[in-house]
């Protein structure tokens, strides 16, 4: 029996085994490769997607559990334009190798949806499950604060790249 669910605001029907993890249905069946494989065991967060707006690990989520649910991946996060977090990520030059970053942004966007002005502690708590081997943590924190400020002020103006004020010399 095919599994039917909403993926990035479109209805999808897939004929796959119920035990197949969502991660591999996305990557290997639907060829949506923005969601990354890092550990396969819920330990790194590279595969983070939203189910009903909540951050989950696609690698440990069986397809049977997405039947009738709403799934959002990095490809569908911002709709047509970039999400303010993606914007902030670009301005802060957060990504190094970049491999962990779709997962980081999905975790951060779930956080902001629930808590529009998180403290450092809130960020630490929400983001502790997402590893970054390149060590971009301080920029992730700064970019989340920045995007939160943007969403709050909603001034419609793009702020200057952060390094223009932030670079020590």
């Amino acid at each position: 029996m095919p599994i039917t669910f909403m993926l990035n605001d479109r209805s999808i029907s897939l004929d796959v085994e119920g035990e197949m993890p969502l991660l591999w249905a996305l990557r290997d069946v639907l060829k949506l490769t923005g969601t990354k494989f890092g550990c396969g065991a819920g330990l790194c967060g590279a595969c983070t997607v939203h189910r009903e707006g909540e951050a989950i690990r696609a690698c440990t989520t069986p397809m049977s559990s997405v039947q009738g649910r709403r799934i959002t991946t990095i490809e569908g996060l911002g709709g047509q334009a970039d999400h303010p977090l993606q914007d902030a990520w670009i301005r802060h030059n957060v990504a190094q190798c970049g491999y962990c970053q779709p997962g980081q942004i999905m975790a951060a966007s779930a956080l902001l949806a629930q808590n529009p002005s998180p403290t450092d502690e809130d960020i630490d708590r929400a983001m502790a499950g997402n590893l970054c081997r390149c060590g971009t943590y301080s920029r992730i924190r700064a970019a989340i604060h920045d995007a939160a400020g943007q969403l709050q002020s909603d001034s419609g103006q793009t702020p200057a790249p952060y390094y223009q004020s932030n670079l020590e010399s």
């Binding site: 923005g34 991946t73 990095i74 970039d82 993606q86 670009i90 990504a95 970049g98 970053q101 779709p102």
Partner: peptide, 12 residues
């Protein structure tokens, strides 16, 4: 701004 920044946050 890094040239590889945008594609890396869009998942492309």
């Amino acid at each position: 701004v890094r040239l590889d920044g945008a594609m890396k946050v869009r998942g492309t």
